[in-house]
């Protein structure tokens, strides 16, 4: 079996490596990972992750080469969500959920995670990790929705969609439709807010 740790008590090597990263002090430019996920729905208990797109931000720039895209094989097939998320063609390599999570964890390392309405996404990942008998995500998290409210001086519980943010910040929305496109667009939103809010 490929995932022996599922039955045993010992943790897999990639998870040990991941946890160990948080022990060291870091210097140099802080790495942020902006990500977005396509899911089968909004219920983190029932629904699963279909695709993850993630890209790194350092300083005032998106690091184009520091990029991850994972498409996850589904046992359950739900036509509705397929139609919605647009993952129809099978030209991308698909992996099982466990492999997808390994790649994601290896990619994010100890960076700060950034997403739009990120809590749901984090919870989906935590559920996926739980299915692998692993702990929860340890990374610090930032939400562009919250950052935007802070920048505009709106009440903390204001909900703005990514589209609304793009319009307000004059960001091109043409790449949205896929996980990676949303991640990239969110990264642009984050770059602007980061500069405006003077986040290091």
């Amino acid at each position: 079996m490929a995932f022996e740790w599922l039955t045993g008590t010992s943790l897999p090597q990639f998870w040990k490596n991941y946890v160990a990263l948080f022990d060291d002090e870091k210097d140099g430019l802080k790495r942020y990972v902006v990500f977005d996920m396509e899911t089968t729905g909004l219920d983190f208990k029932e629904d699963v992750v279909l695709a993850v797109g993630a890209i790194a931000v350092k300083g005032n720039a998106i690091e184009v080469g520091d990029f991850l895209e994972v498409n996850i094989k589904q046992e359950k097939f739900e036509t509705q969500s397929i139609a919605r998320s647009g993952i129809l063609k099978d030209d991308n390599e698909k992996v099982v959920e466990a492999e997808g999570m390994i790649r994601f964890i290896n990619f994010i390392k100890d960076s700060t995670l950034v997403g739009h309405n990120v809590n749901l996404d984090i919870e989906m990942i935590n559920q996926a990790l739980k299915r692998l008998d692993l702990g929860r995500i340890k990374n610090p998290v930032m939400d562009t929705n919250v950052l935007y409210s802070r920048f505009k001086g709106l009440p903390d519980d204001t909900q703005s969609t990514l589209d609304e943010l793009c319009d307000a910040l004059k960001i091109d929305k043409s790449e949205r439709h896929t996980a990676w496109g949303n991640a990239y667009t969110t990264a642009l939103v984050f770059l602007k807010l980061k500069r405006k809010l003077r986040i290091s």
Partner: peptide, 10 residues
């Protein structure tokens, strides 16, 4: 392109 960066300037 993979080596490049996307920079935002206010």
């Amino acid at each position: 392109a993979t080596q490049s960066k996307v920079v935002y300037l206010e």
